[in-house]
């Protein structure tokens, strides 16, 4: 699952420099980590909603934590994805 989300990040953000295996599960995705910014957050939220039916919201209690790392993001998606 983590690799699947890593692939989603790389594909939806056109990160030509990065391969999914390169994303450290615990490293920050934004700023000093992968260097993502607010445009990427929105693009990623759209991709996550298409792939998993999970809507990301600003007022989610742990919004900063959701995008904190690949592992945190994967955990959030798993906890909220529509049961199918």
């Amino acid at each position: 699952m983590e690799q699947e989300v890593a692939r989603l990040i790389v594909d939806s953000l056109n990160l030509e420099e990065v391969s999914p295996e390169d994303i450290e599960p615990e490293a920050p995705l934004f700023r000093e980590g992968l260097g993502l910014d607010s445009i990427d957050a929105l693009e990623l939220a759209l991709a996550i909603s298409r792939a998993y039916g999970v809507q990301i919201r600003s007022d989610d209690e742990n919004n900063r934590q959701i995008f904190a790392s690949l592992r945190a993001l994967t955990a959030h998606i798993e906890a909220h994805r529509s049961t199918s």
Binding site: I39, L42, L46, S49, Q55, R57, D59
Partner: peptide, 27 residues
């Protein structure tokens, strides 16, 4: 609040319908 993700915007528009959406081509 400053709604950012599409679902934030949708919820603000529902809560205050009919509201004025002040936004950008990007959003």
């Amino acid at each position: 609040d400053r709604p950012f993700f599409p679902d934030d915007i949708r919820r603000a528009l529902v809560d205050h319908a009919p509201a004025n959406l002040v936004t950008t081509p990007f959003h």
